[in-house]
Write a protein that binds this DNA or RNA. Structure first.
Length: 338
DNA sequence: GAGCAGGATCTGC
DNA sequence: GCAGATCCTGCTC
């Protein structure tokens, strides 16, 4: 049994990347029983299932993409793969609209349509709820960073471009944005998977799968699952009326953006982190990554750290950011830490 | 070479 | 006009 390193992006399991034929995957966590027992297998490019599943025992499938969030160092979850394992994409031939999404059950969890029954495995249910919560939080974070609405149906062509750039970044895709120019969110949502593949033969299916998750999340948000809300917490629940400048269409300032990243250490701790939160001293650990994120946020693909740092230095005169008393490379300090 | 400092100019809102 | 983005020169580590 080999194991995939925490932090692994599950697109590494994408059959087009791996050439795998079939798979048996197990989710494991220290002090927890492995989930799935005999293992999980890939159902399609976005979901995995317990091959030993019976309706009475366990949910048949979960979004594979959801588990991206589980493979973080602080989550403790590890995806185990048997030596020489292969992954087979068992395509869902009859993809349904989000209202009938086969991967979402009647309670808003990432389950299949045959899930109209009680799940006896409570811990597994909790994992499901946690996964959904993580997906919603992840999308919420992306919305804030990109300043786009959570529902793809509301996207302008500019929003679509930001989202495509974001997806390119997330899945390490080559540039495919030009293939989706001038499309609104409604246009994008109306497109079938074949059209995604037509526009981008190599990566259209990845974009389609990622969009499908966003569409499903918007659908879940609309249904306001109490289970999911409970997990996410009151301060994290989506709210259209939430007084959040970064989601209200107002342009975000660079210093606000940096603080947003610093507020999500579980996601961005590897690229930016506090050295002394009380004094507002932070370090840009991965300058290229932070610049890339800022470029995506501002729809400036040519952004780099040289330009970003120049913008930071503009804050010196304004008294927003300065270099700490003991100047260090890539270390800055908010003049008025909160 | 990468990062830092700051001037000058351009751009989008 | 503002807030960056871009380009630049010169400097430090």
């Amino acid at each position: 049994m080999g194991s995939l390193e925490p932090g692994l992006n599950t697109t590494a399991l994408h059959p087009s990347r791996t050439g795998f034929q079939e798979s048996s995957l197990t989710l494991e966590k220290q002090d927890h029983e492995p989930k799935g027992g005999a293992g999980w297998e890939l159902v399609d490019r976005t979901s995995i299932r317990d091959p030993t599943h019976t309706p009475e025992r366990s949910p048949p499938s979960v979004y594979l993409s959801c588990f991206d969030m589980l493979f973080t160092e602080d989550s403790g979850w590890t995806l185990k793969v048997p030596e020489g394992a292969h992954v087979t994409p068992m395509r869902l031939e009859q993809r349904k609209e989000p209202e009938q999404c086969p991967l979402i059950d009647s309670q808003g969890l990432c389950l299949s349509p045959e899930m109209d029954y009680q799940i006896e495995d409570r811990s597994l249910e909790q994992v499901q709820t946690m996964v959904v919560g993580e997906v919603l939080k992840d999308i919420e974070t992306a919305c804030k960073l990109l300043n786009i609405p959570p529902d793809p149906m509301d996207w302008t062509p500019g929003n679509v471009q930001k989202w495509v750039l974001w997806t390119e970044h997330l899945y390490r895709l080559p540039q495919v944005g030009k293939s989706f120019q001038e499309l609104s969110g409604k246009d994008l949502c109306a497109m079938m998977e074949e059209e995604f593949r037509h526009r981008s033969p190599l990566w259209g299916d990845v974009l389609y799968a990622h969009l499908d998750i966003w569409k499903s999340a918007a659908w879940m948000k609309e249904r306001s699952s109490p289970e999911v809300s409970k997990f996410i917490g009151s301060d994290e629940v989506w709210s259209a009326t939430e007084a959040d400048s970064s989601c209200s269409g107002q342009p975000i300032h660079l210093w606000q953006f940096l603080k947003e990243l610093l507020l999500k250490p579980h996601k961005y701790g590897r690229c930016i982190s506090w050295l002394n939160k009380e004094k507002g001293i932070f370090k840009i650990e991965d300058s290229a990554h932070v610049a890339r994120l800022w470029g995506i946020r501002k729809n400036r693909p040519a952004m780099n750290y040289d330009k970003l740092s120049r913008s930071i230095r503009q804050y010196y005169k304004k008294g927003i950011i300065r270099k700490p008393d003991v100047s260090q490379r890539l270390v800055y300090q908010f003049v008025h830490p909160v």
